Amino acid sequence: MHVILPDEQIHQIQLLIADLIKQEIEKRLNNSNLDSPFLNKQQACNYLGISNNTLDSWIKKGVPVIRVGKIVRFDKNELNRWLQNQ
């Protein structure tokens, strides 16, 4: 099947796609929120530049973790301090 659209509709579709991509990038950047002093596990991995398995290993070695019920957070200052002492 071959669909032929007028140039104006093609342009509108391109703008919509570009806007959706921009929104998704902004959403992901906001979710990474590395400006926060507290990081979730994925953010901590990104911050430290390590894999999830490496972080799990480091937790066993004493990386400071904040646990509230099932929620796990990492304080960036404590992570930095722990790394400097290793």
Rank of each mutant, 00 (worst) to 15 (best):
59 I>K: 05
12 Q>Y: 10
19 D>S: 14
24 E>W: 09
2 H>M: 13
15 L>T: 10
3 V>R: 13
85 N>C: 08
41 K>M: 07
10 I>K: 12
23 Q>K: 13
64 P>W: 03
67 R>T: 01
16 L>S: 12
45 C>L: 06
13 I>E: 12
76 K>M: 03
7 D>F: 08
20 L>C: 14
30 N>Y: 12
30 N>A: 13
15 L>S: 14
25 I>R: 14
5 L>C: 15
10 I>V: 09
14 Q>K: 14
47 Y>W: 05
56 D>A: 08
63 V>Q: 03
33 N>C: 05
80 N>R: 05
13 I>K: 11
18 A>C: 09
56 D>Q: 09
71 I>L: 06
28 R>N: 15
17 I>V: 12
61 K>C: 13
46 N>H: 06
45 C>F: 02
37 P>A: 12
43 Q>E: 10
33 N>M: 03
61 K>G: 08
72 V>Y: 01
41 K>E: 03
82 W>F: 00
12 Q>V: 10
22 K>Y: 15
51 S>W: 05
63 V>S: 02
12 Q>S: 15
60 K>D: 15
31 N>I: 06
37 P>I: 06
68 V>R: 08
30 N>K: 10
61 K>L: 10
73 R>T: 04
29 L>C: 09
28 R>V: 07
17 I>T: 10
16 L>A: 10
61 K>T: 07
24 E>Q: 14
57 S>P: 06
66 I>L: 11
53 N>R: 11
34 L>E: 04
7 D>N: 15
13 I>H: 10
11 H>D: 12
59 I>P: 01
6 P>I: 14
19 D>R: 10
47 Y>I: 00
71 I>V: 07
85 N>V: 07
9 Q>V: 13
69 G>Q: 09
29 L>Q: 08
29 L>F: 06
55 L>W: 03
62 G>I: 05
81 R>N: 01
42 Q>T: 10
